[in-house]
Amino acid sequence: MTLTETRRQAPPAVVATDLSKVYGSGDARVHALRGVDVSFATGAFTAIMGPSGSGKSTLMHCLAGLDAATSGTVHIGDVELTGLTDRQLTMLRRERIGFVFQAFNLLPTLTAEQNIRLPLDIAARLADQALFDRVIETVGLKDRLGHRPGELSGGQQQRVAVARALISKPAVIFADEPTGNLDSRSGAEVLSFLRTSVRELGQTIVMVTHDPVAAAYADRVVFLRDGELVTEVNAPTPQSVLDTLVRLEA
């Protein structure tokens, strides 16, 4: 059975149903999300796009259990996030979710290798050495493992962050503008590495970005505007993403 077939048969990794998020009250009420229904296929690389203020970061935070939705439900695998305590959410993040942020991904006091192993250490789990070797191989940082973040380039730092997300074999990795702080060449490196991990390791990745070129690395792009899911593009190219964005902005 090929990876593609597995993907088709497996249930979606993340499902959001009628998700709403309201900030503030009275006149200051802001609807960040208005009844979003979306699901993210297992083993797929999905990008969330939208203009500034469209609610894409809020959506990601709610999906990842970092923020609580006002109404609606989120499932990660068979676990429903609504009603989980802080501790249960923390455990869920440990076991099932990986993160790559735009910046401040790494602890400056730890070496690259220590940073990569950090989620396992926190969860007091043993590393799968084969997986570790494979991840290191893929990420191409073998000779930099003993360096601290300060001694690595921005692109290398983000690759360490991705490796860290991969190492605990999470059900889904959420990446929030992972290339936002990088030059285009480093950005391309990180994005191809993300795509490689989907292709070769079967990892599910959900990435928030506002860069059409970055979005084009994904298998599918969903578009948000004013807190609502408006459209999606499968097998995107930078041009098709850009066209969709321009249409949305109009």
């Binding site: 990842a64 970092l66 802080d86 501790r87 923390t90 455990m91 993040r93 440990r94 076991e95 993160f99 942020f101 910046a103 401040f104 991904n105 602890l107 950090l118 989620p119 926190i122 969860a123 860290r164």
Partner: peptide
């Protein structure tokens, strides 16, 4: 602040 938030996102509990 952000570093602590990152650790929490990675699964560090509040007591930890």
């Amino acid at each position: 602040t952000r570093e602590s938030a990152m650790l929490r996102a990675l699964g560090l509990t509040r007591p930890q």
